[in-house]
Design a protein around this nucleic acid. Structure first.
Lengths: 218, 218
DNA sequence: GAATTAATTGAACGTTCGTTTTATTAATTC
DNA sequence: GAATTAATAAAACGAACGTTCAATTAATTC
């Protein structure tokens, strides 16, 4: 046999993408065979190579696509928040909500960095750094405006990223709490970490400016 | 050739264990071949099977050994702390210090759970739960004694575990901060998360008992 | 409706995989 | 020092791996 009736390049490509995400997330990139993937798609292994040059490019495409979507979504979302405090809360809510719905992507992003070629890994690492820096920038900003009282910004950034990313490890949709409830609880914990209280501010020059002296630590 | 001069079962076994940890941590269990491992040890692939029945048992032995050591070490360490507050600080210091020195084990523990057979995975998961529950018990205790003010104990436990385990991802010994300095900063962040302040306590019946009403949240 | 392009199959490629078997030699025991 | 046990090498096993190639058929174009 050869070309099958009703075959369509676009549909096959996205079927490959979907099946690949499921498989890589479940068994891992190294453990996933091209025959397994082809089976899942309902096609012969050779058909894959019309859509990707090789297995590695498939992995890279999956991870790159996810990071692009994360960055674009946060870019859009962050525009609605203005003060550092608002942006901080928005970031935590966004991070948890967005990633809880994309657990395969998150899992692959965390587990398969080492399966990327050095060149591809460098690209993904850079995109991840860009995303994490957007939280760091919020903390920096919040320290300047005295909305936050943080001892070590770099460490607190990492601590918060680790804390909120950890949700994807244990969250199940049938949990006792909804995603939004969990997000709110993590916002509360985040606020504790950055030492935030709803401080008095005055609006000066189109900007929220705090009242009182600047404090560096607790 | 056959048995080599100076060959020793004990030495070969530990050489295998050490090489396996390096290799699995670096390239992953699936990606590590038995020939690679044998090369690292300086032996032929077949020699491995005198020490382990198969590759899977090697992975399980590595992960099980690590968990046993963690649990025993914390068991010993925790005895020196008495109040929930002391135990809490001790836990964070212990966790960071202990794991920073065993990064290969930590990495394998986090990455290779899925490479375990279902039976082996169940055992490791149970050991991990036991360890994490020891932090949960501390938070429970601290709520009873009113040393802590936590909204959701289960979530806070997970948040703290994720936060302090995240250190192993980025920590390098040539960092600007020493392990002890980092541990102290994480203790501070931990204290914020559990809402701890050094509250007044009275020693009653060989036990620290807080003064004042019990509060459930901030 | 012929020519062209798109999509896929089936078979095979050379490699590498985890593991087993057998033979051989070093160390230990008696 | 002979017998036994411990530790390894060397070679091979069949299976599975990622990938390529040629053939074939469906869909599209003209």
């Amino acid at each position: 046999m050869a070309r099958t009736t009703g075959s369509d390049g676009g549909r096959t490509r996205s079927a490959i993408d979907i099946a690949a995400k499921h498989l890589i997330a479940r068994v891992g990139y190294e453990a996933m065979s091209m025959r397994q993937l082809a089976d899942e798609v309902g096609v012969q292994p050779a058909a894959f190579y019309r859509y990707y040059p090789n297995k590695q490019e498939l992995l890279f495409s999956v991870m790159r696509g996810h990071m692009d979507r994360v960055l674009a979504a946060w870019e859009a979302e962050s525009r609605s928040a203005h003060t550092a405090l608002e942006k901080f809360c928005a970031f935590i809510r966004f991070h948890i909500r967005f990633h809880v719905e994309r657990r395969d992507d998150v899992h692959i992003g965390n587990m398969e960095l080492r399966s990327l070629s050095p060149e591809n890994r460098a690209i993904i690492v850079e995109l991840r750094a860009r995303y994490e820096n957007s939280l760091r920038d919020i903390l920096d900003d919040g320290m300047d405006t005295r909305e936050f009282a943080i001892d070590d910004i770099a460490l607190t950034t990492r601590a918060i990223i680790a804390m909120i990313t950890g949700v994807m490890v244990w969250f199940r949709t049938d949990d006792r709490l909804s995603v939004d409830e969990i997000a709110e609880k993590y916002v509360e914990m985040g606020l504790r970490l950055v030492g935030a209280k709803k401080i008095a501010t005055t609006r000066t020059g189109g900007r929220n400016v705090p009242v009182g002296p600047k404090i560096r630590s607790l």
